[in-house]
Design a protein around this nucleic acid. Structure first.
Lengths: 341, 341
DNA sequence: CCGGTAGGTGAACACGTGTGCAGAGCGGCG
DNA sequence: CGCCGCTCTGCACACGTGTTCACCTACCGG
């Protein structure tokens, strides 16, 4: 009587994962039957299925998703590439996106593009996984990545910048119109000496938001008193406000995002400037902090829920029909009136 | 002469991914050679390796990580389970963790435990992937999950709550000492009517932070004037402050996290209360917003960088020695003095 | 010149799953 | 009874990789 090889393996320091074969042996059926027991549409005797499921539960078996994804099926892995996770807006998008993808049975692999140098290497590595799709939160991202995805046959959904290419769908916010509506609000409040803090040049949204503001001013026969440039961070908004108010007479300030507006607001409060009595301040995005007591920023809502819904919708449609033509889903903005205008 | 089956496949609506076999044919070598060309230690003629790499680049080939992970090797997938991504502290932890894991060649799969009902189902599904590890940001998470991981032989690294089990390492903050130091600061400033906003009961940290505060007060012969309960959100801090200050005479308020402190601060400023002249406010965590101009919250730093470093360190050590005994890495707090004490 | 060694190379296998295919059993109908 | 069709089931293959094993060549020392 020989030793059962299973026993010796049981003593292995790193025990194998339970496989369908193990369940088959436990339940006294073929391995195929086990596979079918976990496949909804398969034809299998009901009683046998119950026996198998019981054995599987007892052993703690779960079908190996890697092996399943290997042959034919999808991997259900979706990469989310985000420019900078420290950005509050991007962070909220990711938070919502993760929840929605989870509910859809997709598993988001997160990649932080913060360190620019490692970016290409990172993507090269993650492309070793057969991803169902890549979701790009693209501020300053080059279309080169989309090109690489096309070569690998990975659909791309891009938000924050429009990339025109096959298998690339886009979600984009009405930056120009949104910014214009904020500027018109300031003009309606009787402001005439309006300044702007814009974002860095590498972001397409920066240009659009500045253009929208200039357009609305021009329609009222005005021009911005001054335009400073920030980096979409609170600190940069603080600095830019100090520069602007030190050198110009200003009665209203429109910022390209909420973070910079909050920074500017902080500076003005430190100086004892009455907001909105003496100076109006508006932002863009409507991040969660804009509604906080003590801030209550009047801003242009760039609705995250809508953007995420569009992304998920485009993803589903693209997966069900990989050959469908590219689309651009627009996200409409809306003024949110709080206490700073 | 028959049709080349490859040509008909080329016309397939969803073209296959490029495989090592394709590269082998292109370079005129065996498939094994291709595999070796991508394996650092393998013995392969240098010239041949170059030929293969060139062919691989031309075809856009990347080794399929799923197939590689299937046989023996690690999958390099790490799940991050986070209680609630909308929480600013958790969100910052995730942001830093993602960057560190990426640099390590690990790919974080994010799971948002926000919706409590779907939680178990979610985990059941993600465990179909042979994860290298599970990182749990556990506020109110049951140890049941760790048990499940043990069954599947997946190491767990838990932060925010200590779980004693094999293959589970913990990272934990000195909640009691940190909270006590904040309370002592308030006492040193001459405050005697001190209140507290604590977190929900399901979080272990809530109890520890309240206990630390009570202990420091007791050592000075004091007791809290009142203790309210919030949910770690800004809004709940605002509400709790309104309740407390409506019913009690209070000259200092210590909150179990920064978000609630910011909410309370907002309420006090709305009421025109002088902070820190009439009332001192302290928080816990030192999230990014605590340093924002216009907030400048005095708080107990719960250093995210240190926690993340511990997590990554424990992960690496656990992977290199799966049998090593469990550990608890402690994160030390530090008072950050700003403008609200 | 011969044996030994070292390094290069291809065939074959393992990994764990889903599924096509063919066969088996069985009930219904002519 | 014979045939058809339906459901259930097991075998075998495909998926793409890393790795082991045996084999071959070239080189070097004796």
């Amino acid at each position: 009587m020989q030793d059962d090889p299973n026993i010796s393996k049981r003593r292995d320091p790193s025990p194998r994962r339970v496989t369908a074969q193990d369940v088959a042996k436990e339940a006294g059926v073929s391995r195929s039957a086990v596979s079918r027991a976990f496949t909804p549409g398969a034809s299998l005797d009901a009683e046998k299925r119950n026996t198998i499921l019981a054995a599987a539960f007892k052993l703690g078996y779960r079908p190996n998703a890697l092996a399943a994804g290997l042959s034919g099926g999808r991997s259900h892995l979706v990469a989310i590439f985000v420019g900078d996770m420290r950005n509050a807006y991007d962070s909220e998008v990711v938070a919502q996106l993760v929840g929605r993808l989870n509910a859809l049975g997709k598993w988001p692999i997160l990649i932080d593009g913060g360190g620019r140098k490692a970016r290409d290497a990172l993507l090269g590595e993650v492309f070793r996984y057969p991803l169902d799709a890549l979701i790009m939160r693209a501020g300053s991202m080059e279309p080169l990545i989309a090109e690489q995805c096309a070569k690998l046959n990975i659909p791309v959904i891009c938000s924050g910048r429009i990339i025109e290419a096959d298998q690339v769908d886009n979600v984009c916010c009405r930056n120009l119109e949104g910014s214009a509506s904020a500027a018109r609000l300031l003009i309606d409040r009787g402001r005439h000496r309006i300044a702007h803090i814009r974002g860095p040049e590498s972001y397409g949204a920066s240009d659009e938001r500045e253009a929208g503001m200039r357009k609305a001013l021009a329609q009222a026969g005005l021009a911005p008193v001054a335009v400073a440039q920030g980096t979409y961070t609170v600190e940069s908004g603080y600095q830019a406000a100090r520069d602007l108010f030190g050198r110009h007479e200003i009665d209203a300030l429109h910022c390209a995002n909420d973070a910079m507006a909050i920074g500017a607001l902080g500076y003005l409060r430190e100086c004892g400037v009455d907001v909105p009595g003496a100076v109006s301040v508006t932002g863009f995005d409507d991040i969660a902090m804009a509604a906080w007591p003590g801030i209550r920023l009047t801003t242009v809502q760039n609705p995250i829920g809508a953007a995420v819904s569009h992304i998920v919708d485009l993803l589903e449609r693209r997966l069900s029909d990989p050959q469908k033509p590219s689309e651009v889903a627009w996200v409409e903005t809306q003024l949110v009136l709080r206490d700073t205008h």
